[in-house]
Simulated assay, not measured.
Amino acid sequence: MSRRRLGQLEAEVLAVLAEADDYVSTSELCTRLAGDPAYTTINTILFRLHDKNMVERVQRGRAFVYRLVVDESEVAAERMFSHLRVASNPSSVLNQFVSGLNPEEADALRAVLDRHRESP
């Protein structure tokens, strides 16, 4: 079994929380994530996300349950910005990103850029 980077697993946890209609427990998250991640690993990620004010938690019984309190698209965009800010050649990073898009993603990016070009 290949191991995911922690940042990737954190992103997957955020995605599951974004899709959820209600609070989700650590054990529920473990079952919704691919690859059978360890309960303790997911719990650690949730504690870190809580410390970053990205999720809120409430106690249900003896366990905590979590829900996303930030917009997932803002989180993803901020990660992209942070990578561009530290890159020695941001243009090259953007080129690599765009060359990895599938046709639907490229069309969506073009539409967003066109909308931003047209608005003052």
Results as ranks from 00 to 15, higher is better:
residue 116 H to C: 09
residue 120 P to F: 07
residue 23 Y to M: 03
residue 8 Q to P: 02
residue 43 N to E: 05
residue 112 V to F: 15
residue 14 L to V: 09
residue 59 Q to G: 04
residue 22 D to F: 07
residue 92 S to C: 09
residue 111 A to P: 05
residue 63 A to V: 05
residue 80 M to W: 07
residue 2 S to W: 03
residue 2 S to I: 10
residue 39 Y to H: 14
residue 100 G to M: 10
residue 43 N to Y: 04
residue 10 E to W: 00
residue 75 V to K: 05
residue 90 P to E: 08
residue 82 S to G: 05
residue 110 R to H: 14
residue 84 L to Y: 07
residue 30 C to H: 04
residue 43 N to K: 11
residue 70 V to R: 04
residue 23 Y to C: 10
residue 7 G to V: 14
residue 58 V to P: 08
residue 40 T to E: 06
residue 8 Q to S: 13
residue 117 R to V: 14
residue 96 Q to S: 06
residue 118 E to C: 10
residue 7 G to I: 07
residue 95 N to Y: 04
residue 83 H to W: 12
residue 94 L to V: 15
residue 63 A to F: 10
residue 90 P to N: 05
residue 1 M to V: 06
residue 52 K to D: 09
residue 46 L to E: 00
residue 29 L to P: 00
residue 75 V to G: 02
residue 72 E to D: 07
residue 30 C to I: 02
residue 28 E to L: 03
residue 51 D to Y: 04
residue 103 P to K: 05
residue 54 M to S: 06
residue 92 S to H: 14
residue 63 A to R: 02
residue 41 T to Y: 01
residue 14 L to I: 15
residue 31 T to Y: 12
residue 108 A to R: 09
residue 110 R to G: 12
residue 50 H to P: 00
residue 108 A to H: 07
residue 5 R to V: 13
residue 27 S to T: 12
residue 114 D to C: 05
residue 37 P to I: 13
residue 88 S to I: 03
residue 6 L to Q: 13
residue 62 R to V: 07
residue 61 G to R: 09
residue 28 E to Y: 02
residue 45 I to Q: 00
residue 115 R to N: 11
residue 97 F to H: 00
residue 107 D to F: 08
residue 26 T to D: 00
residue 31 T to H: 03
residue 66 Y to N: 03
residue 32 R to K: 13
residue 62 R to Y: 13
residue 93 V to Q: 07
residue 108 A to I: 10
residue 104 E to G: 07
residue 120 P to W: 13
residue 10 E to C: 04
residue 111 A to K: 09
residue 85 R to D: 05
residue 16 V to C: 14
residue 1 M to N: 02
residue 57 R to I: 04
residue 70 V to Y: 01
residue 83 H to C: 13
residue 31 T to M: 11
residue 14 L to Q: 06
residue 6 L to I: 12
residue 107 D to C: 08
residue 18 A to Y: 01
residue 33 L to E: 03
residue 39 Y to G: 06
residue 110 R to K: 15
residue 12 E to G: 00
residue 101 L to Y: 05
residue 31 T to A: 10
residue 111 A to F: 05
residue 30 C to Q: 10
residue 107 D to S: 09
residue 85 R to S: 07
residue 108 A to Q: 09
residue 106 A to K: 14
residue 74 E to Q: 11
residue 45 I to D: 00
residue 24 V to P: 02
residue 61 G to A: 05
residue 50 H to V: 01
residue 76 A to G: 02
residue 15 A to V: 11
residue 71 D to V: 03
residue 71 D to Y: 02
residue 21 D to I: 05
residue 76 A to D: 03
residue 40 T to G: 10
residue 68 L to S: 01
residue 20 A to H: 08
residue 93 V to W: 03
residue 58 V to G: 07
residue 28 E to R: 06
residue 113 L to R: 08
residue 105 E to T: 03
residue 38 A to C: 12
residue 2 S to F: 08
residue 102 N to T: 08
residue 71 D to A: 11
residue 82 S to N: 12
residue 79 R to V: 10
residue 33 L to N: 04
residue 15 A to I: 01
residue 108 A to T: 12
